[in-house]
Every structure is written in C-alpha cells, then in structure tokens.
Design a protein around this nucleic acid. Structure first.
Length: 480
RNA sequence: GGCCACGUGGCGGAGUGGUUACGCAGCGGUCUGCAAAACCGUUUACCCCGGUUCAAUUCCGGGCGUGGCCUCCA
C-alpha cells in the first residue's frame, strides 16, 4: 500500500519510499521537561502516534523505529529548578525537575492512548555525540570558535533556508534581533556555549578550555544520528519548529555528514488555539493536559475524548480547542462505546479507514468512515478501527466526571467561589429509584419527576424501560 | 516591515474542475405517564472581485480577513 505524506521540504504529498523498508525511521521533537505539557504539546504526540501505528501496520511492528527525544538541558529548566528547589545544589534540583516532569509527561500521554516510542533519548546522555558533530563541522569549516562559543556559519551552506523557504537576504531584511558580538554573520547560530558558574556543564569541544553546554538545535542532530543514523525517513514536529529549529538541525546534520538530506520527509502539525485565541498564560487560557484530565469546562475528561477531539481536525490545519468540540467528541465516543460493549473487534482493519489514513493521515476523513460503520451496524469493524487508532472502547472508562471541585466565576467579585460537588453512593441511588417507582405506581408523577430531576442535578440519569414481562423497570447510569 | 498558511451551511470539519462527505445543533417522527437516552427522516455552504474554461467552491491573479514564523515555543 502506498502511504502518501505531505513533505514540508517539497510542499507536496509524496509516496513514502523508506530508505530501508525493514527499518522505517522516524524522529519527532519531544518535550522540554520543565513543566506540565499543554494541549498544544499533545497535538504532535497524538498525530505522530497515529503515524507510528500506521507505519507499524504497513511495514510490520518490528520494522519501525520511532525516536522522540526528551530535552533535559535548557535555560527554562535551570530557572525552574532554582525557583522550586532553592535549597538544593543546582544540578540536583535540575535532576528533580526533569525527572518529575518526565513522569508527568508520560502519565499524560499514556492517558491519551499514545504508544511509547521505540526510544526516548535524553539530551544529557548524548553530549559526546554532540561534541563529535561540532568537531566535524569545524573540520569542514562549517563552524568556527569565537569567545569560547562555537557557531555554525550559515554562509558556508548554499542551501541554508531551503526547508523554511526563505533566503538569507530575506531573513536579514526581516530580522529584528540584536546580533551577538561573537557572530560573524547575523544568522549564525550557537552550537556550543560556555556555561555560567553553577550551570550544568561538560568538557567543551574544539579545544575550548572552559566547560560549556550545547545550543538548542544540536541535541536533535546528535540523538537522531545516534539512534537513526546519518539519514532517515521522517522528521516531525510542530510547524513553529520549521524555523529556526529544524532548519538549523538540518544544516548541522547535512554539513557534518556530507549529505544533501537529513530526513527525506519533514512533517509539521498545525498550531492550536484555545477558544479562538492563542494560548498564553497572560490571557489565562493556558490549558495543560493534566487540567483537562482533572477538571476543565466543568469535567474531568477521559483521554480518549481528548484524543478524538484532536483527531477530528486534519493535522496540518489549525485547530481551535473548544469545550464545545470536546463535548461533541465525548458524546460521539460515548454512543459508540455503549454499542460496542461485548463486541469483539474484526480481525482486520476496514480498508476504507486505512485508505483515509494512508492519504496524508486524513483522520477526519477516517472518522467519517467510522460514522458510516456505526450507522451501518458494522460494529466489529468499528471496534477494530477504533482500536487501531488508539482508542480503548470501554464506556466505563469514558465517563467524564464533573470536576470534583468546580470553580465558578461570580461577577463583581475578585475571588472565585469554590463549589463542592457531593459524591452519591449507589445505595442512595437505588433508594431514590425505589421511592420513585412507588410514586409512579401511585401515579404521583409530580413526586416521581422531582426525584428524577434531583438525581439529574447530581449527574445521575434514569432510564425507564420495561422488562421481559412488560413490567416497568428503571436503570441508571452516570451522566456522560 | 519580511516570509508563510488558512478562509466551506447555525457550529465543527473533509473533499472535489461538472453527480449537494460527515458530525453536532435545529426541525419532524418512533418510544415514554411526561421525559431522558436511543433510533428513523430532514433544511441550510463553499470570503469578495476579476481571469482561464462548455463548466470553478475546486485552477490563476488581486483584495479583504484570521492565524503562524522572523526571539523561547508543538
């Protein structure tokens, strides 16, 4: 089967032709571990998880290598460590921050139904590879040493700017940056820089006497090289990484290893907004995966619903993350999962779904096929397709509980008021259903409706029906 | 200021040079003491202006709008 993917490098969809079909290789830029991952971070994780699953299906589970790095050296990490653990030595504090954040990240993306990548390398475990790349670049005159920094000389690479499709002249014309005094060319970027006292540091390359640390882009070149080789098939990440991160990564790797390509296909997911606005802490609409899972827009949302809402939009389109679309996603899955109870998955994935995914990961098209499968009663196939896409298909794990503590904004006051939602025991529910049944038998519908409304207000939905003998029977479930 | 992407019915969201995806909501119906849930049926579209074409929502040019990148960023 032909898998067609949109390539940022060529701006068109192309059939994937792996360099080695017995080992298809994909690298995706992972998190910098200093804080909870937000919903925007979740997008590439989910999108490339779907691609990973598709590649495993097409080429075989043992023939796909998926590398997603963990960036554990960064100024933001240092700042967070100093803030949160002022009593610890900086390096110990940094270790605490990165380990805790990594565990949070894993818990969150596991809940989103994402498979773990084949390898999750850490930047700090690849310093020797980074130094080796720096040495190669200097030797080939693509990099130079200045004031204990090592810089990449963009003028030494004819095709610099090819990925982002902008020339050096354009970049210089639009630049609003102060050029550091150690740069020969305004667009040159740092490969290695000296560490300040107390900061993490490693022996420097290129004969630099003082210890230092890597620039931002170098780690990905090093980790991709170590785990996937000099050239590989797919490199992914958010569209905001095209420039400068991926452009620079590509420049480093191509110049260090003398290739015209680093990855054959570069894939970028579109940006995410929240309720129509750019997500930012200052706007107060910054939403983490953890918040969504524990309480957002009134509910603790199950990971499957978050995943479904995310896949409802094609990965290259911008996506507006709203409570409404999340609610819609949850409602759809709720209905399907209810019907899938006890249904065994079909042994093979429906071709229609596969065809959609093979066309540049058309997940919204695939979801339309799922609707058709559901409507057509092809439940075994629906289940197979949902499982393939990473969904759990268990309704009891899909309940969106009202957030234990809901925050209600009251006008004219500064402080939010907290409302505690009281839990209700199953015995309480059974008791009230019995009371209501008695009221109904007596045709006291005012009382029976009152009880039903009361339970509804507490998130319990009653369903009246008849048993085999035609007697009225009421069942209940937690409202979705 | 420079570069780039996008603009589809009330909302979300695919896709296509000619045969009105799909979902949600709405409306009508089945069911129900009444509801809820579920199920059945159903209305509404392709930002504006030019051009190419027998034919454009789909291709080309311009405009307007939204968003992104150029600085840390998925």
């Amino acid at each position: 089967m032909d898998l067609r993917l949109y390539n940022t490098l060529t701006k068109e969809k192309q059939p994937l032709r792996p360099l080695d079909p017995s080992r298809v290789r994909m690298y995706v830029c992972g998190p910098t571990v200093y804080d909870f991952a937000h919903i925007g971070n979740a997008r590439p994780v989910i999108v490339f998880d779907v691609l990973f699953r598709l590649l495993r299906h097409v080429y075989g589970a043992d023939h796909v290598a998926y590398v997603r790095n963990i960036t554990d050296v960064d100024d933001k990490i240092n700042a967070r460590a100093a803030r949160d653990f002022p009593d610890l030595p900086l390096n110990a504090a940094i270790r605490k921050v990165t380990e805790e954040t990594e565990a949070q990240f894993h818990a969150d993306v596991d809940a989103l139904g994402c498979l773990r990548p084949s390898v999750e390398p850490r930047a700090t475990e690849h310093i020797p590879e980074m130094r080796a790349i720096v040495e190669k670049l200097i030797k080939r005159r693509h990099a130079y040493v200045e004031r204990d920094h090592v810089l990449f000389a963009v003028a030494s690479m004819k095709t610099y700017g090819r990925l982002a499709r902008r020339s050096l002249d354009e970049m210089l014309a639009g630049a609003r940056i102060d050029v550091a005094p150690y740069k020969r060319d305004a667009m040159d970027f740092v490969l290695w820089k000296p560490s300040k006292p107390g900061e993490p540091s490693w022996p420097s390359p290129a004969g630099i006497a003082v210890e230092g640390r890597p620039g931002w882009h170098l780690e990905c070149s090093a980790m991709a090289w170590k785990h996937l080789g000099e050239q590989f098939d797919i490199h992914g990440g958010g569209i905001d990484l095209v420039f400068p991160h991926h452009e620079n990564e590509l420049a480093q790797s191509c110049c260090a290893f003398h290739h015209d390509r680093m990855a054959n296909v570069w894939m970028h997911n579109g940006f995410l907004q929240v309720e129509g606005e750019k997500m930012s802490k200052s706007l107060g609409n910054f939403v983490t995966i953890r918040e969504l899972r524990e309480g957002w827009a009134g509910y603790a949302w199950p990971g499957d619903a978050l995943r479904f809402a995310m896949l409802g939009t094609h990965y290259r389109q911008p996506i507006d993350w709203t409570a409404k679309s999340l609610d819609e996603a949850h409602k759809t899955l709720w209905r399907w999962y209810g019907d899938l109870d006890g249904v065994a998955p079909a042994p093979v994935m429906p071709d229609e779904v596969l065809a959609m995914l093979a066309d540049d990961l058309n997940t919204s098209g695939a979801i339309a096929v799922l609707h058709a499968l559901h409507k057509g009663g092809r439940l075994a196939e629906l289940r197979a397709a949902l499982s393939f896409l990473g969904f759990g298909c268990e309704q009891r794990r899909l309940q969106r509980r009202p957030a234990a503590v809901a925050t209600v904004e009251i006008e004219m006051t500064d402080a939010p008021i907290k409302v505690i939602v009281q839990p209700l025991s199953e015995a309480d529910v059974a008791q009230r259903i019995a009371e209501r049944a008695a009221a109904r038998a007596a045709r006291n519908f005012a009382e029976s409706d009152r009880i039903r409304d009361e339970l509804a207000a507490m998130g319990i939905v009653l369903k009246d029906g008849k048993d085999a003998d035609g007697k009225p029977v009421t069942t209940w479930e937690v409202a979705r």
